[in-house]
Design a protein around this nucleic acid. Structure first.
Lengths: 251, 251
DNA sequence: CGGTGAGTTGAAAGCAATCAAATGGCGTGG
DNA sequence: CCACGCCATTTGATTGCTTTCAACTCACCG
């Protein structure tokens, strides 16, 4: 099997090389119940496993470039990544943030529309697009699960368009914090009242269509107002969720 | 079959009531080669036809409201519709514009995420969600076509996020005009150099995250610069596509 | 203990929003 | 056929939010 992925990019200290074709892989996979593979029967999963390969990547590494031939797709097993688009002169917009069990890449298409970059060290379950496409066509359940996920992504993207087009800086920051508190709640389903941002200030700005200075100022204002606390650069405590919700809609 | 659609909303002068279950319907359908139904075999299409119903709606009518129980989905046969989201205090963002052969509604989900409103008089091929969902699950090809369409929509939405978050008014208008010249080219594949906007100035503003005054000013400026001509309120002629492309990226 | 880079704060500028008024196309009714 | 009113759009003046440019703070690390 040819791997369309530059393994020189993987973590040097990633431990032993991925075992690759070991069928046991999926049985212990952290995201086996939540990724799209969850719908597969045991033997189907084994077949898919034979097509895939686990890779570990470092924070900051780009996995796919926009405009690339779409040669790979992947499930996120661990870590956080961003999808981004940019203008010719370098302005950047983050168009999506993906978490464990999310799916990345553009199946059934010629080229990858957006850049995919790791925000933290991450582990992916990687497939060549051709192999994945074939498997998905042959397994309607998998295709259906992918459809549901894509529909959800589309809803989320469109909801974010309202934020980008019509909300002011205060509302953007408040909405963003509430969204993070929900998205980062992996297990308990309860939105978190304290969490660690996987994003730098600049990246928050790139998600919200703002500048880093505006993000910083808004966060400071909210801190002064007692709505949030910022114990360190990456941690956010939501002290007054009600007021934050109010900020998010009617700043 | 129960119809979850208020037929009192349909055009009073829509002519004879829809024939509904006539199998011949699909054979002459204007979008039979481009809508998602195109992948179906003749007998499958007949089966789907039995589930659907054609309706005609007037410009300005809303077909689905955000937050509604998702009870219907539809193919657009004729006309243009908008998908929109809005804040509590009434600011609106158009998150999508749909044309003939596009699919609307939220299959496989509880509730409709966005409002769908006709921009022009329009004809839809309407299904109850439950019936459509069942049919799509039983016909993987249809599901796959829907997946491809949804993936395309997602790519387009994310590309638009770059515009909303990072482009200035001039770039937004230029990008919008170029996009329209491509999307409105129904047959010839060639982008049009003259076209009729299906949107009012306010609606253009709602697509771009601007105010109506800013839209008007930018169009006037471009007219003065000889880049476009505006023979009447709805018509746009692209006089200098090269310069427009330049505006779109580096205003 | 200085160096580095992320983040914060301050001052000023700029772009789009807001408020307000004028224009112009179009249909109705005289 | 023309006058009128309505409404979408344009144009003008001003405001103000976010950006820009610049300096400073702070945590972390050799």
């Amino acid at each position: 099997m040819t791997l369309y992925f530059d393994l020189s990019q993987t973590l040097p200290d990633a431990g032993p090389a991925p075992v690759g074709h070991d069928v046991g892989f999926c049985q212990q996979c952290e995201v086996r119940t939540s990724a799209i593979c969850a719908v597969l029967a045991k033997d189907e999963r084994a077949a898919l496993n034979r097509l895939g390969r686990r890779v570990t990547i470092c924070a900051g590494q780009t996995v796919m470039w926009e405009g690339d031939d779409a040669t790979i797709v992947a499930n996120v097993i661990q870590g956080t990544l961003k999808l981004s688009a940019s203008t010719g002169d370098g302005r950047e917009q983050i168009v999506g943030v993906v978490y464990p069990s999310d799916f990345i890449g553009r199946p059934f298409g010629r080229s990858t529309p957006h850049r995919v970059t790791a925000l933290t060290d991450a582990r992916l379950c990687l497939f060549t697009r051709g192999a994945f496409d074939g498997f998905a066509r042959a397994n309607p359940d998998l295709g259906h699960r992918l459809l549901q996920r894509t529909l959800d992504d589309l809803d989320r993207a469109r909801t974010w368009m309202l934020l980008l087009g019509r909300k002011n800086a205060r509302e953007k920051i408040a909405t963003f914090l509430l969204d993070m508190s929900r998205r980062l709640a992996t297990d308990g389903r309860e939105p978190l009242d304290s969490f660690e941002l996987p994003l730098s200030r600049q990246q928050v700005a790139d998600v919200l269509g703002l500048t880093i200075e505006t993000v910083s100022r808004q966060l400071t204002d909210m801190k002064r107002a007692g709505i949030i606390a910022l114990p360190n650069r990456r941690t956010v405590d939501l002290l007054d969720r009600d007021r934050l919700v109010w900020c998010a809609e009617a700043a």
